[in-house]
Amino acid sequence: MRDEGRKHRHARRRGWGFGRPKIGRTGIVLVLVSVSVTTIYPLLFVIITAVKDRKAYILDRYGLPTSPTLTNFAAAWTNAKVGQYVWNSAIVVVTAVVLSWIVCCMAGYALSHLRFPGRRAAFFAILGSMMIAPQVIIIPLYAMLIKMDLLNEYPGLILVYVTLSAPFGTYLLTSYFKGVPTELVEAAQVDGANHAQILWRVMVPIARPALVTLGIFNFLWMWNELLFALLILQDDSVRTLMVGVANLRGQYTTNIPLLSAGLFLAATPVLMVFMVFQTQLTKGMTLGAVK
């Protein structure tokens, strides 16, 4: 609703065109600032609430904290088992990201630089598999993982994540690898390198930006994933952070400050990754979008 209002206000100003410096620009900045407020305030709210103790929150829910405390973070760490769950998430996600790199690099190289019959078919098959929505396969997958004894085991979720990330990753890397001039490949071949060495020594270094982007992108969505994590790693000892957070609501609904502290802790790794790699990511995200 608020955004609609902004849109209409801007439409009025647009009659001045893009040439007018001061006022037009100020209007634009105002609009952008207001939208930024809506994106930043909720996070601020979480932080502000997390540093209040329970009584202070009940007394004054929306104001600034009078005597900020860090006890909630400590409590969330233990009660909400953040310390335990974050470790599970880390193991699963890091392994999945690395494996995804390996799988997609190999597939990408094969689809871009190797000549073999059925190459086009393979490419479309991989891409086509993206159309099978997760919901469709979730039940047989669940039953299959039970039979394979992978339920409540890290590899169960890891393999699922790698599979889910494979088509997009392959597509991204195939496009990127295609941009590598064949002369480089041929030169390496003349030097006697086999394809594995070419991939490792030539392609991967050149495709670093794409790899970094893919890695960050995978990290983000895998860290935040809920449905498969909820179903595959159910046991408390292997539960991931997001599932733990989702269930904070059940047990600790009163204690909003505690909940907020837990939420913040859960978001921290992702926020850190985002802050550090932000420019990389925003540039790289579009590698696949624009032809």
């Binding site: 392994t95 494996l99 409540n152 590899p155």
Partner: peptide, 24 residues
Amino acid sequence: ARSGILHLALIGTAVWACGCGKGG
């Protein structure tokens, strides 16, 4: 760094393949 991560991951993979994960 990249190779380093790869090595770590391979070791890590070997470790969990040896059967961590709970339940039962």
